[in-house]
Amino acid sequence: MAKTILAVDDSASIRQMVAFTLKGAGYEVIEAVDGQDALDKANIHKVNLVLTDINMPRMDGLKLLELLRKLAHYKTVPILMLTTESGDEIKAKGRAAGATGWLVKPFDPKRLLEVIGKVIG
């Protein structure tokens, strides 16, 4: 059975590029437009991995990460941050909140798939 990935980004073009890459590799993809939308969808679908942007309206990626880690199912699910941000301070915040990894945009599809393959097997 295909593994499901929740892709969270307020940019429609990024969501489409992520979905295109992941679906091409056989993953099922659920898209969310911000942290709140992602949280709602994460409660309905028990996904295998979350790939989230940081700077988003309504709820940012760090808050989403923090709230997901409080949910039983998401305590161990890999959560990767895919963002333009690359500062040490914000990275440390992500790490402390329980992020599995940090990917700086723009992403390369092959490398993205390698990393995802590594964390969800």
Partner: peptide, 8 residues
């Protein structure tokens, strides 16, 4: 260019 990747 592609951004950095770091796994924690």
């Amino acid at each position: 260019q592609m951004g950095d990747i770091e796994l924690f």
